[in-house]
Every structure is written in C-alpha cells, then in structure tokens.
Design a protein around this nucleic acid. Structure first.
Length: 498
RNA sequence: GCCCCCAUGGUCUAGCGGCCCAGGACGCCACCCUCUCAAGGUGGAAACGGGGGUUCGAGUCCCCCUGGGGGCACCA
C-alpha cells in the first residue's frame, strides 16, 4: 500500500463490537456497540463484529444469532463480521486459535511469558494466604522454573498455563478517549494468565491479538475493563505492537441507581422490540444517554447521529436508564410515522395481541380507520390492543352496572337508564352512520335531557366500548357500526334494569 | 485491604475561567384546549455533594474529604 490512498485509509477509524455469546445483549452493551458504529460511520471508518467465544463453558447456544438479530433490528450494520466475512476472517475467536498460539510462542521464546504448573487448588491457596497478608494476586513463583524444564514438563503432558511477566516497578499508562491518561503503578499488576490449560487464550490475549490483526484503532468496551487495561498495554508492548486508543464507556444503571436488572423491566433490545418500541426510538435514546449534541436537541435520526456523533465527546459518568423518557421518545417517533407505515405496525401488533381470541381475520380497512384515532394516544404498540379491542370482538361483555354508573351517573341509575334509552332513540333514525350526525344527535339528546354533554358521552362510551378510556366517542361509534352500537346501548340499558 | 473510575435539579444532560443569581429534555404541578384519555399550548417548583486552595474572577483548574461504581479468576 502506498501513496495517498494508503495514508487516507490509515486515518479511517476501525471499531469493533466483540460480544461473548453468553446471552442476549444488554442495552448497556448495545449502547457501546451503537456508539462505536456511529463513530465509524461519522468518520468514514469501518465497524466490525467479532464473536469472542473463548470460554467454552459459558457459551449459550443461539446467543450469537440473538446478538446479530439485535444489531439488525436497530439498523446497525457491520462491514466485516459474521455473514459478511472480509479481509480478516474468520471473525469468531474459536476459529482463530493458531493466531493466539503463535503469539504465545513468541512471548515464550522472548522470555516475556512463562509456563506455570500450579493447579487451581494451589492457586486458591496462594491467593488466600497472600490476601491474609494484605498482598494480592499471583506471586510469580513459576518464574523460577527454568524454561528448559518447563518445556520438558509440558512435553510430558503436564497441564500448564502461560503467564505474562509484568515489570516489578515503574508505572504503566494508556490513553482513554474520554478520560485522558490513566496511569497505574506496576507493583499493582501481577503476572496474569494469557493461555489457559485447555489451550484456549484468555480474553486478555485473544482480544489483543485480534484487535491488532484487524487493525482496530479504538477499543471500545465497558469501563469495568479499565483496571486490566495496563496489562493489555504491557502485552501489546511485549508483542512489539502499538496500543490502540481506548474508549471505556460508563455503565447504564437501573432506576434505583443499582445495576439494571430484571426487576426494572426489559434489559435486552429484543425485549424492547417485543414490547412495541420502535428501533429508531431506542437507537436515538441510547445514543443520547451519555452523549449530547448541544444544549437542546433530543430527537436525532440515525443519519443525523452518524453525521454528528464523536466518541471522544462521551460523558464519563454512569447513567440511569430513564424508561419514562424512552417511552416519551417512542411516542414522538410513533407520531412521526406516516399512516400506512403505522397501519402496518398496528395490523401486525393487533394480529398478535388479539387474533388468538377473535377468530376472524383482521380487517385492514378497519385498522387503517383506527390509525388517525389512536396515533396520538399510544406511546407503545403494546398499549394499542386494550384501546381498541372492542372493535374487533364480535360481542363485548356488557359493562357492569358499576362501570356504567361511574362518576357522572353515580347514584342515578334510573336517569342513566332513561338517558341510554334517549340516545338509542336519537341514533336509531340516523341514515348516514358517520361521526358527524352521531355527534349532532347525541348533543341534541344531552340538551333535551338537561344533562351535561360530557356526562352523557361517558355513559355512552362505557355502554358501547366497555371502557372509560377510548378514542373519541363519535368516531369510535362510527367504527363500531350502527348495529353493534345500538345493540350495546340496549344491552347496557338492560343491565341497569336489574 | 489494595488499586482504579465517577460526581450540575428526581432522571438524561448543556456548560470546556467572566456570555451562568446555571440552559434544554423527560418526569412532576397548575392553567388553557377538550366528550374520556392522549396530543398540543402557557406557566411553575426543582441542581453546581462538602472543605481548602489557584485567580481580579470558579459549576468550569488543583488538593483533600464524602458519596457512588468498578477491579484484584485458567470469566469475559
């Protein structure tokens, strides 16, 4: 590679999302992926997905596909990774074992790393004994084993791990894009394991080797990794490479300031998808919790984010996941959608939530008629069914007397009954069954009865829909249809008759 | 115990030494609109954790304290 093209390419950031397939990705985890993706898109770089499955014991079947599905749902695409491949394939660590082996051999040959034969039990004992003395970690006793002897024991089949030799004094520093320089004393670093006895690399080794091989420029990950980053820097140095820029992202907290947990509702993006959140809303929300464009902009499209976001501008402190703000934002996005897209979403959602009971297929025209009535009343798709179910069920259970006589008619059963009767009489002769004549008739009825219009409307609302909260009454009655409206009025009246 | 990170209203944040007796958003309260609920409109309550410095001047820089979080595995 030479000339301007090479130089330009070298300037382009390459970021990666490197999840372990141990379960559904957490929103905090996905937020880091999103930020990485945005940064890559903003600067004309590349976004890579790499599966880190070096812990065979914790692998969860199907987890990888769920992770990729989460990314796809949010509209986060990757330039290299599973299903795409590319110049650094494969993108699954368990398929890259030879690479880690080569690195270990080099380290061993250079004397920067050494074999260790302690059993897990021995290590636990060492740890316990040292902790009692106020020391920490591993004491480096295997450094004393001569390389030739270690090699012989390994060749004889004795299980071993490989540890990296850490400097005893001095300090180690690295650059974090959102916190600046972080420096620690080497005395606080012990010789850590880079190759496990099962022949698999640890995270430390594997990610360092892969990030180098894949030319990753910014290592993004949760800030719980900060304490081990100096080790990674030493490893990189021992391998003769240059460290990347680190971006340690803060955590997302639950409403109580603690860890986000099942108690707080959804944690994985797939759960949010299931509850009826829009991907563009969750994406916007995640992007701006921990980052702000300016002092007033909240709603940013995927494209706008990709145009303005910079990973160095992230806020360093942890954020509480504000579900209420997410809901508000989802409502904003829902209201922005055009009618036909909304009808599609509603149709799918209602089919899922209602069809099991109602035997009839969904009436597309009816769904389309609903859109203008509920689009401003729904923040989540999941709220839709309870708001319009009475339109789709053939017969609703007649509302309880108690419900019919809610506030407006409390203690006035006879008057309510009379009012229902009057409404029936007023509506029955209507020829064109649409909202306008219905409204005219009902308002006239209220006046005749000397009743507050609102009170009468509420009585009708409960009688016809079985609910106290619905879309606007007249439009609703239009959709319920003349026959069902009149029948339900009659039925409600019967209920009041005892 | 040792090490590290963080710190503006209930929550997310703007602020990168004077433009801030601190701005926006969600939420909350009130009012308006109104057939319920929403949506929308208007107004309101609500914050720089504490103490020392530096400086003519500190939310903004430094130190300490406090508080919160994380790490100290053959897990990532």
């Amino acid at each position: 590679m030479s000339g301007d093209a090479g130089a330009a390419a070298a300037d382009r950031p390459r970021l990666r999302y490197a999840p372990s397939p141990t379960g559904d990705p957490h929103v905090g985890n996905i937020r880091t992926a999103l930020w990485s993706w945005l940064h890559a898109r903003r600067h004309g770089g590349a976004f890579i997905v790499r599966i880190e499955d070096t812990d065979q014991a914790r692998a969860v079947p199907g987890a990888e596909e769920r992770i990729l599905e989460s990314l796809r749902w949010l509209g986060i695409d990757w330039d290299e990774g599973p299903g795409i491949e590319g110049p650094h394939a494969p993108y699954v660590q368990s398929q890259r074992l030879p690479l880690y082996g080569e690195a270990v051999d080099r380290l061993l040959a250079a004397g920067s790393a050494y074999r260790c034969f302690d059993t897990p039990e021995q290590l636990a004992a060492i740890r316990e004994e040292r902790r009692a003395r106020g020391a920490f970690g591993y004491d480096g006793r295997c450094r004393a084993i001569a390389p030739a002897e270690a090699e012989a024991r390994a060749a004889a089949g004795e299980p071993f791990v490989v540890r990296l030799r850490m400097p005893d004094d001095g300090s180690t520093a690295f650059h974090d894009a959102i916190r600046g320089e972080i420096r620690v004393e080497n005395a606080t670093l012990d010789d850590f394991v880079i190759l496990k006895s099962d022949g698999f690399p640890t995270y430390h080794l594997a990610h360092v080797v892969d990030d180098h091989a894949m030319r990753i420029t910014h290592v993004t990950r949760g800030d719980e990794w900060i304490p081990s980053t100096p080790r990674h820097v030493r490893l990189i140095e021992a391998l003769g490479w240059e460290p990347p820029t680190y971006v340690h992202t803060p955590v997302i907290l639950g409403p109580d300031g603690g860890k986000l947990s099942k108690r707080h509702g959804a944690r994985s993006v797939l759960e949010y998808a299931d509850e009826g959140y829009l991907p563009e809303a969750l994406l916007n929300f995640l992007a701006i919790t921990g980052w702000a464009l300016d002092d007033h902009t909240e709603i940013l499209s995927r494209e706008e984010l990709a145009r303005h976001f910079d990973i160095g501008e992230l806020v360093p402190n942890p954020a509480v996941f504000d579900t209420q703000k997410l809901e508000w934002m989802n409502g904003v996005y829902l209201r922005q959608l055009d009618a036909s897209r909304l009808a599609d979403l509603f149709e799918a959602r209602l089919a899922r939530d209602l069809l099991r009971e109602a035997q009839r297929p969904l009436d597309r025209a009816l769904v389309e008629a609903i859109v203008p009535l509920v689009r401003e009343r729904v923040k989540l798709l999941a709220e839709l069914a309870p708001m319009v179910d009475f339109l789709f069920t053939g017969d609703i259970a007649p509302p309880e007397q108690e419900a019919l006589l809610g506030k407006p008619y409390r203690g006035r059963a006879a008057e309510a009954q009379h009012a229902l009767n009057a409404c029936y009489a007023a509506l029955d002769p209507i020829e064109r069954w649409t909202a306008e004549p219905i409204e005219v008739a009902l308002r006239a009825t209220a006046e005749e009865l000397g009743e507050r219009a609102g009170s009468l409307f509420m009585l009708c609302r409960v009688a016809v829909t079985g609910r106290a909260v619905t879309p606007p009454l007249f439009e609703t009655m239009e959709l319920v249809g003349r026959e069902r409206t009149l029948a339900r009025l009659r039925s409600a009246e019967q209920t009041l008759r005892y």
